[in-house]
Design a protein around this nucleic acid. Structure first.
Lengths: 212, 212
DNA sequence: TTTTGTGAAGACATTCACAGCG
DNA sequence: CGCTGTGAATGTCTTCACAAAA
């Protein structure tokens, strides 16, 4: 077991491992070697062993890892043994889709409150139709409900202000879809997902002449 | 000017620079130093200079970069001087949202065809209501229309098969929202966006004790 | 002077290769 | 034996620091 800091690259892979293990468990696989895991997610076996070793998840030498055991250990490490309440800001096209997206629920996240500049729209969440609050109520609702995770799906212009309000309301982690890198205090974790940029970086490679 | 390979990390930042420059241009800024650019996107000035230097985008020593000129140069490098047609596969919650998402259009991407296992749903794209084709027609439509970019928004189970079909139809770049790392031939570029994983890696940090 | 462009240094991440345990 | 866990080697990305140019 290590006490060193876990690299962010490792953290990013943990949930891939988690999902793979769930899948293997469903297939009835009981034990898996790093080589088998690696083959199924396109990574290097040594990398998987190293990643897992950060958490003292002991495999069995000569055998591999117990799928069920490792899966539970990872869930625990990732903090997904509980359901996390999420505040979604922005009920436009993207926001509404995210509310309806069932992948979040599958991962243990539940959209608990939705906010928009124009709150008189309603939004269909994965579980039910959800009332949309105005932005003025953001701080009150988020802090009252103890929501710790925010998802920002508003246009560029409003994004930094929304992030500020979320931080002010006690949010600790933000998944940001607006095309900015918001300023946040050190204790707040931000993950940026910029759909436009992702496509643009694809075209960089496409517009190049065919390799040869 | 360099002839070395451009690091993927650099490519990922180009569109951030592009957007920043568009914004500065709108504000009437004519020249910007790497320090100013860096301040506005939260990066290191040296990194920006190095990134830009890969493309021989000469700044002016003692002055900075001409905003307008640099913006055009980057557009060119990224290949976003034209509109790219995109094939969207999966017209469920996420897919419908992506079709309606106006950010794509703003970046020069247009959803030109939508495919789904159950094609009798219709989908509202950013520009118009779009007919949804069945998966059987994917190859025909994509190759006939010369579409080179595919967006995959189907559940895990169907994802690899959809990717295979896209590749077979001549797609060269894929933006994949399914929680797998699809196998593709070397000439096809894939960008994975895994919304569940993004949230999970946030909780890793949240579930830790408050630093101190 | 000011700011670029870039080698060199440093930080970080991945892969190799093998000792050691089951 | 086979496979994990890990130091050492390699590779990649970021930052420093400064000579050269406008």
């Amino acid at each position: 077991m290590k006490r060193t800091k876990v690299p962010t690259a490792t953290v990013g892979r943990l949930s891939i491992y988690g999902r793979l293990l769930i899948q293997m468990e469903e297939e009835g696989v009981e034990v898996a070697s790093s080589a088998q895991l690696a083959a199924r997610c396109g990574l290097n076996p040594a990398q998987i062993r190293k990643d897992l070793a950060y958490f003292g998840a002991f495999g069995i030498r000569g055998v591999g890892y117990r799928v069920n055991e490792l899966k539970d250990r990872l869930k625990d490490v990732l903090g997904v043994t509980r359901v996390w309440k999420v505040a979604l800001v922005g009920a436009g096209n993207l926001g509404s889709a995210l509310a309806a997206y069932r992948g979040f629920l599958a991962h243990g996240f539940e959209i608990d409150a939705v906010f928009d500049k124009y709150p008189n729209r309603c939004v269909l969440s994965a579980k039910k139709t959800v009332e949309v609050f105005g932005l003025k109520e953001l701080k009150r609702v988020v802090s009252q409900r103890g929501i710790k995770i925010g998802v920002v799906a508003v246009p560029q212009e409003g994004a930094q202000s929304v992030v500020d309000q979320l931080v002010d309301a006690g949010i600790q982690g933000i998944l940001n879809f607006a095309p900015i890198r918001p300023d946040v205090p050190e204790h707040v974790r931000v993950k940026n997902v910029d759909l436009g940029s992702e496509l643009e970086s694809l075209t960089f490679y496409l517009s190049k002449p065919v390799k040869g």
